[in-house]
Amino acid sequence: MKSAVLFLTLYFAGTYSQQLCDHPPSEWCSTWEIAKACQVEKQCIEYYSHKDPKKTNEPAVQVELYYESLCGACRRFLVFQLLPTWLMLNNIMNVTLVPYGNAQEKEVSGKWEFTCQHGPDECYVNTIEACIIDQLKDIESHFPVIACIEQSANLTSVLGPCLAAFAPQLSVKTVMDCVNGDLGNKLMHQNAMRTDALNPPHEYVPWVVINGKHTDTLQDRAMGALFNLICETYTGPKPDACSGKEVTPLKRDSVCLN
Rank of each mutant, 00 (worst) to 15 (best):
S3M: 14
V5T: 15
L6V: 04
F7M: 10
L8H: 06
L8M: 14
L10D: 03
Y11T: 13
Y11R: 04
Y11F: 15
Y11E: 13
F12V: 15
F12M: 13
A13Y: 03
C21M: 08
C21S: 08
C21H: 09
H23D: 12
P25M: 10
C29G: 05
C38H: 08
Q39Y: 13
V40S: 15
V40A: 10
V40Y: 13
E41A: 08
K42M: 05
E46K: 02
D52A: 13
K55P: 11
T56Y: 06
P59N: 07
P59K: 01
A60P: 11
V61F: 00
Q62C: 04
C71N: 03
A73W: 03
F77S: 03
F80M: 12
L82R: 10
L83Q: 10
P84Q: 11
P84F: 01
L89C: 05
N90G: 02
T96P: 04
L97I: 11
N102V: 06
A103D: 09
A103Q: 05
A103V: 06
A103S: 13
E107W: 04
E107T: 15
K111N: 13
E113P: 03
C116H: 12
D121W: 11
E122D: 09
V125F: 02
T127R: 10
I132V: 15
D138R: 00
E140F: 05
S141Y: 11
H142Y: 11
F143S: 04
V145M: 00
A147G: 04
A147M: 02
I149P: 00
S157A: 02
P161K: 02
L163P: 04
F166T: 04
F166D: 00
V172P: 07
V175P: 14
G184W: 06
N185F: 09
M193Q: 12
M193E: 09
D196N: 13
L198M: 07
L198G: 01
N199L: 09
P201G: 05
Y204C: 14
W207P: 04
V208D: 09
N211T: 14
N211G: 10
N211F: 00
G212N: 08
K213S: 09
K213L: 14
H214L: 13
T215M: 10
T217G: 12
T217N: 09
T217K: 12
Q219T: 08
M223G: 01
G224A: 01
L226G: 06
I230A: 02
C231D: 15
C231R: 00
G236A: 13
C242T: 13
S243Q: 14
G244P: 07
L250R: 02
R252W: 14
D253V: 11
C256R: 11
C256A: 12
N258S: 09
